[in-house]
Simulated assay, not measured.
Amino acid sequence: MWTRAELKDRAKSVLKISYWKAFLVSLIIAIVAGGDSSYNMRANFKRPFRRNEFNEFTNFNGDFNFNTDFNSDVMVVIAIILIVVLIIFLIVAAFRIFLGAPLEVGGRRYFVESAQNRADMNNIGFAFNRGRYKGIVLTMLWKDFLNFLWFLLLIIPGIVKAYAYSMVPYILADNPNIGYKRAVELSVQMTDGEKFNIFVLGLSFLGWYLLGALAFGLGGLFVNPYKNATEAELYLVLKENAINKGLCTYNELTSNDMLI
């Protein structure tokens, strides 16, 4: 059994030694994975119509005289916009799949290793070794695809499954060639009965992020290392529990390939 206080105390001890390294790694994770980033929705209001402007669109009887003739030129413009949007989407997706996901796994590996007194920035490039890259990309793509399907059903199941699959990057950081199905299966098993506790753990950082938001939203960047270090401690606890329960073996979650 683990408690939030225990995990956070361990994370603080690690950060005392290597905070700025953790900050740089957290910044990379936030950029490539969107992790720990907040997005503010802003409503943009146009100025109200003046009376004479409104009369240009209506007659005195209140009948609308909109003359929206969608001719071929308009359709061409719409088609161009859709193509541009599609291209941007494909570029973002390719960035996430082929660069973002491997960097995220490398970042998670850094924090796991740091929790064991091995804070090495070279772990960021861990996934780009020829023997690891393919397995990591395939597994992360499979995880994101499954999560996307759950979000298509309903928001709540998607969120629940996101917590269920949350250990996949850490599992890959330990064993990049574990296999995409096994990584997802093991993550689901490790988080079984723990998802609500993990949710509450994440919620416990909300106050820090709100405080950080006062500094033009940039303060949250300095909270990310604390959160990432705590989550790495959580993984190590769940990993130990999984081994003790016979869900996996020690060798299955230990990378024998230490090349960077």
Rank of each mutant, 00 (worst) to 15 (best):
M1I: 06
T3V: 07
R4N: 11
A5D: 11
A5F: 04
K12V: 07
S13P: 04
S13H: 13
I17Q: 14
A22P: 07
A22M: 10
F23P: 06
F23R: 09
L24F: 15
S26W: 11
V32Y: 05
G34Y: 03
G34E: 09
D36E: 15
S38V: 08
R42V: 11
R42M: 12
R42A: 13
K46D: 14
F49A: 13
F49L: 15
R50A: 12
R51T: 14
N52S: 14
N55K: 14
T58Q: 07
F60N: 11
N61G: 05
G62V: 07
N65M: 15
T68Q: 10
M75C: 10
I80K: 12
L82G: 05
I87E: 05
I87Q: 04
F89C: 10
F89P: 04
L90A: 13
I91D: 03
V92S: 06
F95A: 10
F98G: 04
G100E: 01
P102E: 10
L103F: 14
R109P: 05
Y110P: 10
F111Q: 09
V112Y: 06
E113Y: 12
Q116W: 02
N122Y: 09
N122T: 11
N123A: 14
I124R: 05
F126S: 08
F128K: 06
F128D: 07
R130W: 10
R130G: 05
G131S: 14
L138W: 02
T139Q: 01
M140K: 07
M140C: 06
M140D: 02
D144V: 00
W150Y: 08
F151V: 01
F151Q: 00
L152R: 02
I156M: 02
G158M: 00
I159T: 00
K161W: 00
A162G: 15
Y163R: 00
M167Y: 01
V168Y: 00
Y170M: 09
I171F: 08
L172Y: 04
L172F: 04
D174P: 01
D174V: 01
N175R: 13
I178E: 04
I178Q: 03
Y180A: 04
R182I: 08
V184C: 04
S187V: 00
T191R: 03
D192M: 07
F196A: 12
F199H: 00
V200S: 08
L206G: 10
G207L: 12
L210E: 05
G212K: 09
A213G: 15
L214A: 10
L214R: 07
A215T: 04
F216K: 12
G219W: 10
K227G: 03
N228L: 13
A229W: 09
A229Y: 06
A232Y: 04
Y235V: 01
V237K: 13
L238T: 02
N241L: 07
I243D: 13
I243E: 14
N244Y: 09
K245R: 15
G246V: 02
T249W: 12
E252F: 04
E252Y: 06
S255P: 03
S255K: 04
I260Q: 13
